[in-house]
Amino acid sequence: MVKTKVEEAARNAEYPLFIPFIMAGDPDPDITVELAMQLQEAGAHILELGIPYSDPLADGPLLQRSAARALEQGMSLQRAMQLVPKMRDKGVTIPVIIFTYFNPVMRMGEELFLDQVNEMGADGVLIPDLPYEESRDIEKKAAERGLANISLVAPTSGARIEKIAQEAEGFLYCVSSLGVTGTRDSFPPEAYTFIEKVKANSKAPVAVGFGISTPEQVDNLHGVCDGVIVGSAIMRKVEECTSLMQDPEKRTKALADIKSFVSSLISS
């Protein structure tokens, strides 16, 4: 089978394969598009575009707040996907993954959703509440369209790791430690053993997410996995800079601040 664009980008990246997450529509759709461009310029290899959801089970307080703000702006799965062509117009060329809980997908219809992902120029999907057993169908339909369906493994996956890792498509999202999204000061020592086990089993590149916010953490994972996923730490910066970004005179400076934060993580 031909490799998806996501897998190609993931394989070609030097450490750290860097995958930022941003929430569509927080604080507004235009800034989301700008942010995508800044992240690419900072060196991101793949972008996760988050769809705000009313009941985000896997998310900590920071991304819950971010989703709530985006929903207040009227953001939806449909509207978020329409941001992808705008990103492309601005010059975003890296693969974009639509990160969404399953309910909005089901509401839209799986087939229509995947067709839209394709038509809008996105390259993959990640559905955190669709574990291996429930995702066989959508994985197949995604593959038929040349889209990557990103799988997750967690520290509790145990005997499931092999099965999930060996079928991983694009890259494998390795959840660093138990709990919801959000920053953690450090990982427990057993996290490294777990990540090494995942890496040993995976045919696709392995990126670690949940709790990554500092250059030291990125350094410590060098040699253990292929890259990192950073979401809450970026959206925390966005939250802090919201009023600046919405002020036309201060927007450029605010975006540059976020970009330099991301650059510092990548060049660690």
Partner: peptide
């Protein structure tokens, strides 16, 4: 079972 992977075990 529509839950995050962490809960599957």
């Amino acid at each position: 079972k529509f839950v995050p992977e962490t809960l599957m075990y």
